[in-house]
Design a protein around this nucleic acid. Structure first.
Length: 833
DNA sequence: GCAAGGTC
């Protein structure tokens, strides 16, 4: 019997493809059960029995010991100086490890075939540690299940994978030491036959320096993230789910949004004037602008207007200029997220939809940096496959029949995966975001193999009195790729009338428009994700999640993205405390510096210990400054939270109306919490000023802010209804749950007059900054993904909300009726996805 | 209840 060979990959798809490429007949075995199934692929390769199995990304992680489990300001310094990190098996990987143990049985040779990048090298190293029995199951300084036993009485059952030896600190070895030691490592840059065969023909060994670099990146990120997240949270009384987070990627990303907001606030508008002429010829309207463009003085514009005094405008020149618009480059992850954002699908939702389409076999792997199709990709074949997709069937057939298609190329060429393209056609219609993302991928692919569009730019010059005017237009001469992709690009056809010099238009009016320069716009999610890529913040697989995290923390809201006062204050706190500091985690330079250090570790120039030590030192300095300024940090953040929560003034008692989320039901309402002066009078303490977390993607549910408050204990609690507050005791709403750690400071508690209102269940709630013209109660702004709307806070009482109430009622009745016939369930699903 | 990185 020849030696059995085990091949480990980073994901199932890679194991499956390698088996297909190297083997003739592949036998699939399913391990585990339910949703967590893992497959292994058995085949013969060069006469040897071989099994390929995919992990699911990382299977080990960096862990703190239990003594740092409790959040406390008091042990942060110790955490920095002695993080006591240990590399342990990831508790979530039990199914994968069980499958690995089964698949590796009897193997005498091992090939690591994880992705060809830094994380892939680390994942390969994790596999070696586990197979060889070196991997720790838990931190050696922790006493295992001891704590659980004390608390609950019963010991936690050991993880299924290692039931046989729950007592030992290490995972039981799966392969003999010698097999692990003489492992091979193959590096393929694409999952295509020639690449894979070439890689397996000349294997090397794992690059442990590179794996060390990746592990150090994890350590540094966790250390900075944990210490600063805890510091900021504890300093501002944010306990439990209401914690505030800080990280090497998320905080500089927040800074991008905050910087833009600061520019907007600092912007000084400059007035200017424009002169426009409304013209008519043969029943067609045309608007032409003064050829001078913007006038910086009103008097000059008025003079131009006055001198445009003839009843007819005479055409003096008519020019056309051909222009070519090139089709777009193939989609990589960032470009797809950005395009999806412009059709109303947030990056994180687009990513989820793309993942699901990939798993259904409809699109290629969705996490890629590449914007150049590999040579081996059969473009005509992909087009031919799309003839089964109705909306583009005709064009796809026409393209597939062309001799040999060529595609556009983007400027990011990597070897990880091909750009994202369609690989299948849905058998039944897709819904929601999946439908949108699939259509986008299909149309984008077709666009990349189509011809450029030819646009005719038109310019019409006219004179009115002594004044020159200009009108511009455009006409699509040849649609090219716009035939399939036109709906996603700004290119609009607006042709001018066909005229010649000497022709005339009737002048209906010559208008003066006073305008002023506008501040730079807010960033859209699409623009932000592109900026992150340009700046090296995050990766293709994480950027969408990181943007979502900023919404979840209520640092930002809406799209275009608007920072909340909390988000502004967090950056302000770092600015104040870390001004001139050698390292600031809120700066994008942090990533560049870490990358440079990782390169030096992988080159063998620097040990990981030195990099971690230096990082600890920098963090210690940062923490000292922050800790020295803790009162200021607290004040800045708490004041910002108060501004974010405050919706207006209570009509009954003059106190502040604030947004509250019930901790028990998650429902939101507004409550009076009295005047700030009453803080001292109340004389009680509790954890306060916390914000709820939740899916805050625009368009989806966003969390209002949560406060500690007694207000809704009042009998005046609003009736419950579709949008009503729960009417539950406000004790539920006591922010942040949980006990403050170690008797540390807690925020003062306040009472109000008992007035409450229900709040809408979706969208972030902000003050509109004005009183309702009908009833005088504050107006609120509900910010969602498709913009914001304003309404009176008094949902049940104010006549201005009557129409809204009727619509809700009608919808609710329709839904109730539909439920009995079964039609509403489909409708609900659609709105949810 | 900490991050960011894999992947599902």
């Amino acid at each position: 019997m020849p030696d059995k060979l085990l091949i480990i990959t980073e994901k199932d798809m890679a194991a499956r493809k390698i088996a297909d490429i190297l083997g003739d007949h592949v036998e699939v075995t399913r391990h585990g059960s339910g949703k967590q199934k893992v497959s292994s692929y058995a085949f013969d390769w060069q006469g040897r029995p071989t099994v390929a199995i995919g992990l699911r990304g990382h299977v080990m992680r960096t862990a703190f010991p239990d003594r740092y489990k409790r959040w406390s300001l008091k042990n942060l310094h110790e955490m920095i100086r002695d993080p006591d990190f240990v590399w342990v098996v990831d508790g979530g990987a039990q199914t994968v490890l069980g499958a690995l143990r089964a698949a590796s049985k009897g193997a005498q040779e091992l090939i690591i075939a994880t992705d060809y990048d830094r994380e892939g090298e680390l994942i390969g190293n994790e596999a070696l540690a586990i197979l060889g029995g070196e991997a720790l199951k838990r931190h050696p300084h922790d006493d295992g299940a001891g704590k659980k036993r004390r608390k609950g009485g019963a010991e936690e059952p050991p993880p299924a994978e290692d039931a046989a030896d729950a007592g030992t600190p290490h995972v039981r070895a799966m392969l003999p030491r010698a097999v692990v030691d003489r492992h091979h490592r193959v590096r393929y840059s694409a999952l295509i036959a020639e690449e894979v065969k070439a890689a397996f023909a000349k294997p090397t060994t794992l690059d442990f320096h590179l794996a060390d670099a990746a592990r150090t990146r994890q350590d540094v990120d966790l250390l900075w993230g944990a210490v600063l997240s805890r510091f900021i949270s504890l300093a501002s009384y944010r306990y439990g789910a209401a914690y505030l987070s800080v990280g090497r990627v998320q905080t500089p990303t927040l800074r991008l949004i905050v910087d833009r907001e600061r520019e907007r606030r600092a912007f000084v508008p400059v007035p200017y004037w424009e002169v426009w002429a409304d013209l008519e010829r043969e029943g067609r309207q045309l608007t032409a602008g003064h050829a001078h463009g913007r006038f910086d003085a009103q008097a000059k514009a008025e003079r131009a207007q006055a001198e445009a005094d003839t009843p007819l405008a005479t055409v003096t020149d008519y020019q056309t200029r051909p222009r070519s618009v090139k089709p777009p480059a193939p989609f990589n992850t960032t470009a797809l997220m950005s395009a999806a954002s412009s059709v109303g699908v947030s990056p994180s939702r687009a990513m989820r939809a793309a993942e699901s389409l990939y798993l259904s076999g409809l699109i290629s792997y969705p996490r890629t940096d590449n914007t150049v199709y590999p040579k081996a990709l059969d473009l005509n074949g992909v087009a031919a496959g799309l003839t089964g997709y109705g909306p583009v069937a005709g064009i796809a057939a026409e393209l597939a029949a062309r001799p040999k298609l060529t595609a556009t190329r983007g400027n990011k060429r990597t070897s990880d995966h091909p750009p994202i393209y369609p690989v299948g056609v849905p058998s039944s219609p897709l819904e929601g975001n999946e439908a949108k993302v699939y259509e986008l991928v299909v149309r984008r692919f077709l666009a990349t193999v189509m011809d450029a569009a030819r646009i005719e730019s038109q310019k019409l010059e006219l004179s009115i009195g002594s004044q020159p005017f200009v009108a511009r237009g455009s006409r699509v001469a040849e649609a090219g790729f716009l035939a399939v992709y036109g709906k996603y690009v700004a290119e609009r056809e607006k042709p001018l009338p066909q005229v010649a010099p000497g022709d005339t238009f009737t002048v209906e009016a010559v208008r003066l428009e006073a305008k002023q320069t506008q501040p730079p716009g807010r960033l859209s999610q699409g623009t932000l994700i592109e900026k992150m890529e340009d700046m090296g913040l995050g990766t293709k697989a994480t950027r969408a999640e990181i943007i979502q995290r900023l919404y979840d923390r209520t640092y930002v809201r809406g799209n275009p993205i608007e920072p909340t006062d909390l988000g502004m204050s967090l950056i302000a706190a770092f600015d104040a405390a870390l001004d001139q500091a050698p390292v600031d985690i809120s700066s994008p330079a942090m990533t560049a510096r870490l990358e440079a250090d990782m390169d030096r570790i992988s080159e063998g120039e620097l040990g990981w210990q030195a990099v971690l030590a230096e990082s600890q030192e920098m963090l210690e300095h940062a923490w000292e400054r922050l800790d020295g300024a803790i009162e200021d940090v607290r004040t800045v953040i708490l004041e910002a939270v108060r501004r974010d929560q405050t919706l207006g003034t209570c009509h009954t008692c003059g106190g502040e109306i604030v947004a509250v989320t019930s901790r028990k039901s998650g429902k939101r309402f507004a409550a009076c919490r009295g005047l700030p002066d009453e803080q001292a009078a109340a004389g009680e303490t509790e954890a306060g000023g916390a914000a709820a977390s939740g899916p805050a993607s625009p368009g989806g549910g966003a969390a209002a802010t949560q406060v500690a408050d007694d207000a809704s204990r009042s009998a005046d609690a609003p009736p419950s209804g579709p949008a009503a507050a729960s009417g539950e005791p406000a004790a539920d709403a006591a922010a942040g749950a949980g006990e403050p750690a170690d008797g540390e400071d807690t925020a003062p508690r306040r009472r109000g007059c008992g007035q409450t209102f229900p709040l809408p269940p979706f969208g972030q709630i902000a003050a509109a900054g004005k009183a309702c013209p009908e009833c005088g109660w504050p107006m609120i702004r509900i910010v969602g993904g498709r913009g914001s709307r304003e309404q009176c806070i008094d949902y049940y009482g104010c006549p201005s909300n009557a129409a809204l109430r009727e619509r809700r009622e009608a919808r609710r009745n329709a839904a109730a009726e539909g439920r009995s016939t079964g039609t509403a369930r489909r409708g609900r699903r659609r709105t949810k996805s």
